[in-house]
Structures are given as C-alpha cells and as structure tokens.
Nucleic acid binder design. Structure first.
Lengths: 221, 221
DNA sequence: GATACCATCTTGGGATACCAAATTGGTATC
DNA sequence: GATACCAATTTGGTATCCCAAGATGGTATC
C-alpha cells in the first residue's frame, strides 16, 4: 500500500483512538517523523482528514479537531435525517437475509465482549443498515457522521443498562424493517437517535471538567 | 490568496463550466502548466476536488468525473432527504426577513436574465434555503449535492415553461415556510425535487447521443 | 498481417531544498 | 517588574528532483 494511504490510515486511527488529544496541535514535520514518511504523503493525509473533520486549520497550522458539543448535536440531527431516509428506502424492498447479517452483528456481542468492541459494533450497525438502502450517498453520509461522532462516543460514560437498552432498540428497528413497516421502523430509529444524542451530550457536558483535565479541548454547545 | 486555493477554484470552475469535458483525462503536469503552479498545489487541489466528486482516479491517473445517470438519481434522493429535514427545521423557527432575502433572489430573475444566471439562482435558492436551518451539516450536504448536480443541470435542456414552473414551486415552498407550515412546505419541496429529478434524468437520457458527440462521457442509469 | 517483445517516454508517488511568514525567546529599556 | 523590540527558530507553502510503474510505439518474428 502507498505511503499516502498508510499515513492517512494510521493518523486517523491515532486521532479516533484519542492517542492524540482533541485540540492538540499537529505539525507536518512531527507526523513526518512519527510515520517515517516525507511531507508529500503527510500533506495528502492531512487534506483528506480535513474533509472528514478530524483535523482542521488553526491559522497557519493544523489542529486535531476539538470535541464540539454544538457540532455533535447538529450531526445528530443530520444523521437522523439521512438514516431515516435510508431506512425507509430499505423497508421499500426488504431483504431478509441482509437483515439477518446485521442481526448477527448484534448477536456477536455478549457480556464477555470488550467495551471497545461494543462501541465498534454499535457504529457498524448504523453504517451497515444505511448501506442496505442501496443509496451510496445516504450510506456515505451516515458513515461520515458516525466517524465524526466516534471520538465522542468513545468518551461517553455508558453503563450496562444503557448498552442493553441501545441493543434492544436496534433489534426493534430491525424487526420493523423486516416486516417492511417503514413508519414504525422510522419512528423507532428517530427515537433511538434522539435518545442517543441526549445521553451523549448530557454525559459529555457533565464530564467536561474531566475531559479538559485529560488535555482534551471541548467546545461548549 | 494562496496558489493552492487558486488552482482549486479555477480548476473547479473549468470543470463545472464544462471547459474540460466529463470523462476527460487530466494530468498533474497539464494542470501545472495551465495555471502556472507547481505540482504541490495542483495535488492539493485534485485531492480536494476528488472529495467533491468532480474528479476521480482512473487507475494511476486522474479523470474528470463522467456524468453518471444512476448517481444523479441517488443524489436526488439524498438531497430530498436533507433538504426536507432542513426545511422542517426552518419552519420550526421561521424568520420572515430571511425568507424575504431568498424571495428577492427569485425576483432578481426576469425575461432579460441570462440562462446562466437562472441556472445559478436556481441552485442558490436551494442552498440558501438549507442555510436557514442553522444546521451546518444539512447545509453542507445540500451545497455539495447541488455542486455534484451542477454540470448535469447545465446540460439539461429546459424550456421557458419548465423554468416558470420551477419558480412557481419555489415561491410556493417559501410561502408555506413563511407560515411555518412544515408539512405543506415539506410536501411541496419533495414534489419539486422529484419532478426536477425526473425531468433531469429524462432529458439527459434522451440527449445521451448528443452529449457523447460533444465528447462527454455519460454513464447510463 | 498479426502478434509478441523490447526500448522509450510519460506519469503519478515520494523526497528534498528553499522561502516567507509567524512564532518564540531573550534582551534592553523604561 | 513590565514592556517593547529584535534575532533566531520553527513551520507551512512552493518548487524541483528522482524513481518506479505503466503506457506507448516501433520492430522483429512467425
């Protein structure tokens, strides 16, 4: 694989994995040294990650995008619109076996599963569900939104009960979709995303002090 | 302004203005010479335009994205979802003066206005309407979708009657929004976009031969 | 005449050198 | 001690050079 894609992938993982904190300054030369690449691929990677919203310009330099509560709320509204639209499309031409695959993803998580894995599967559920719509743009929109939400969800303090509730909601959405009941599926998905947004923003707002103590820049709503 | 932004802007205009045809091959060296810049800013511009969907990779090289009828239909579905969501948000907190500004845009077009201008205002109507939602992501989604549709709309053969009908629909949408009637506004916007999509795809599908004759790559639905 | 093969050229990916602007750190002045 | 100012360093933007992979075109062979 090309250096360019390597740097991009590794840097993205570092950012999403919070190995570099939100708000932290990045210099092209540091990235260069960190990944043993020259500036050309580093620049390409930064330009790409900028369009994903993971890094941004800070005057002349680069910064890891801070966690922005107002932005998170807007993304939640955005993803609700596109996810519901995608789900309605899917309901219009249900494919039971495709739903089975997604249900199997949910089943793969049990009490022995690492927190990290629950987190990943929770995102993939929404991404794969959107893919079923067959609409490339709705799918990309959901995937990009989930990427932007990813760091925040990682920071969220979620208890067992919350995870269980989320999984139950996921299953209810799939059940409605399987029956082709678009209105019911849409309503459940809307509620799920609204609730998820509320818990996320509340959790982060409450823990802002703790996050800042870890050196993470958090912008208020 | 930096070279990077200059090359990006100029190349984008060339592509959107069909000065370089859909499907045409691009070499970094040609762009370099064309705009008197070196390869670094040229590469940055290409990476950016790639995320906008205006250029794409063709094996090792670059290509101006062809007109893809299937993609245009998907974009129409996508924009309907986000535009309607944005409009519903706007209706929830109507601002009459903001609506006035958009209505003034429509008024600025009359029988003496150049075709090119009608085209531009027709896009800006949707973009500015989305901006009123206050949601940055819905706004960007609409703007990006309109950018992707832009070349196709430019190719569309639109008669006076079609333009007049579109403007009437625009006004009806604004009227409903002004009253805060979200359902009515959403329904009219949906119909407007559906009709617009139908006319666009029909027109392009019928004229495919003519487009190919002009050297434009057109991918079937 | 068709085809397989090879030399050549072209092209994008990467590395490096250079520059201007901005930041930084220290120093002199009040 | 605070501040204004200047030199040194850092950093992103740009230009250029090199390279390997792929496209091209001509040629020899059948």
């Amino acid at each position: 694989m090309s250096q360019m894609q390597n740097v991009e992938r590794q840097l993205r993982e570092m950012i999403l994995g919070l190995e570099v904190g939100p708000g932290e300054k990045l210099t092209e030369r540091w990235i260069e040294g960190r990944f043993g690449a020259s500036r050309t691929p580093v620049r390409a990677a930064l330009l790409r990650l900028e369009t994903e919203g993971l890094v941004g310009r800070d005057g002349r330099g680069w910064t890891v995008s801070p966690i922005n509560l107002a932005e998170l709320e807007q993304i939640a509204v955005y993803r609700e619109a596109v996810e519901v639209a995608a789900l309605r499309l899917t309901c219009a031409h249900v494919d039971g076996s495709a739903i089975d695959v997604i249900e199997a993803m949910l089943d793969s998580c049990d009490e022995n599963t690492a927190r990290e894995e629950w987190h990943r599967v929770g995102m993939d559920f929404h991404i794969e569900l959107a893919r079923l719509s067959g609409n490339e743009f709705l799918f990309r929109a959901v995937r990009d939104a989930m990427t932007r939400l990813s760091r925040a969800r990682w920071l969220e303090v979620r208890d067992e009960a919350a995870l269980g509730r989320a999984w139950a909601e996921h299953r209810a959405i799939l059940a409605a979709a399987r029956l082709g009941d678009a209105d019911e599926a849409a309503r459940r998905l809307s509620d799920h995303i609204s609730g998820s947004r509320h818990r996320l923003v509340t959790s982060l707002a409450n823990d802002r002090r703790g996050l800042r103590a870890r050196g993470f820049a958090v912008v208020a709503a």
